[in-house]
């Protein structure tokens, strides 16, 4: 026996509205499933094209310039080396800036200004960072196309991401932990180093892995700063040698067109990159899982 007011027609959606509702639910499911299909086709196509190329020789041979059958050994090395170097530059800076924003900048105008700058740097297209790196490192400092010019410019890409991740992780630390530390007489620096950073380490690490993935895949910046050649030695740790990475190699051989097997090499390189990124993604999952477990 429901009350009469509940029977009023407008309290129940009209039939047409219910049909639209059903329809739109279907549309939303379809769009979401569509993106899953896109991803599956994408990764599937890249891996299927590249799979036959991926063998031990492909990873351990030097690249060829005119003949078929080259490998990607120095490119793989350069990719890892450049990502490592750029992180070595951007981690201290980014974490320092993140600490400043979370712990020293207050809540007012200073914070807003710094956030605006970091958003701008994060939003700057990598081709613009490439131009900047080319003017400053390659030309003005005379470093030419080299590992060091590439690493410095790549660091510019990383800094805003690491800053943001650090700031957000530090802000996630419970207030009572901080207060307990101050209450025990710790200075701000002691609190940051011994309480805040250890607590947020996993969060920051997740961000660092994501940043590494982004730097690993970056090409526009490195074409104009690290160049499209590799050193003839291996392994070549010198900061002045040219440092073509996997991503740049992939772009260069498809646009240059002197290699007879450019298609196969490109497919293999793309597949190798996807595999590396899948591994990075998996490790982020595991880290994330670790965080959830601990905070529960």
């Amino acid at each position: 026996m429901s009350s009469p007011t509940l029977r009023r027609p407008e309290m129940r959606p009209r039939a047409s509205a219910r049909i639209v509702d059903r329809l739109m639910r279907g549309v939303l499911w379809a769009i979401a499933l569509g993106f899953i299909v896109v991803l599956v086709i994408f990764v599937g196509a890249i891996l299927r094209q590249g799979w036959p190329v991926l063998n031990w020789g492909f990873f351990t041979k030097m690249p060829e310039t005119l003949d078929a059958g080259g490998g990607i050994k120095p490119e793989l090395f350069n990719s890892i080396y450049l990502v490592g170097l750029s992180l070595a530059i951007s981690l201290p800076t980014g974490i320092g800036a993140g600490i400043y924003l979370a712990e020293y900048a207050g809540q007012g105008r200073v914070l807003r200004f710094f956030r605006l700058c970091i958003e701008t740097l994060a939003g700057t297209p990598s081709i613009v960072l490439a131009l900047f790196g080319m003017i400053v490192f390659v030309q003005t400092l005379g470093w030419s196309f080299s590992i060091r010019a590439g690493a410095m410019t790549l660091a510019l890409l990383n800094i805003p991401i690491i800053t943001r991740v650090t700031e957000m992780s530090l802000r996630g630390v419970p207030q009572d932990l901080k207060e307990a530390s101050y209450g025990l007489g710790a200075t701000k620096l002691q609190t940051i180093l011994k309480v805040l950073l250890p607590y947020s380490a996993t969060g920051i690490l997740t961000g660092v892995v994501l940043t590494a993935g982004r730097a690993f895949g970056e090409s526009a910046i490195l074409v104009f700063t690290a160049g499209t050649n590799v050193s003839s030695h291996f392994p070549d740790f010198r900061l002045t040698s040219p440092g073509e990475t996997l991503a740049v190699h992939l772009w260069y051989i498809t646009s240059d067109g002197t290699l007879p097997d450019a298609r196969e090499i490109a497919a293999g390189t793309a597949a190798a990159m996807i595999l590396v990124l899948l591994c990075l993604n998996l490790s982020v999952r595991l880290l994330d899982h670790g965080i959830r477990k601990r905070t529960r």
Partner: peptide, 21 residues
């Protein structure tokens, strides 16, 4: 997960997919 993967794929790999597929 899908969105994380899509954002993580390098632009050259998107390019090669467009070019060869």
């Amino acid at each position: 997960q899908v969105m994380d993967l899509l954002v993580g794929i390098p632009s050259v790999v998107y390019g090669i997919f467009g070019l060869t597929f």
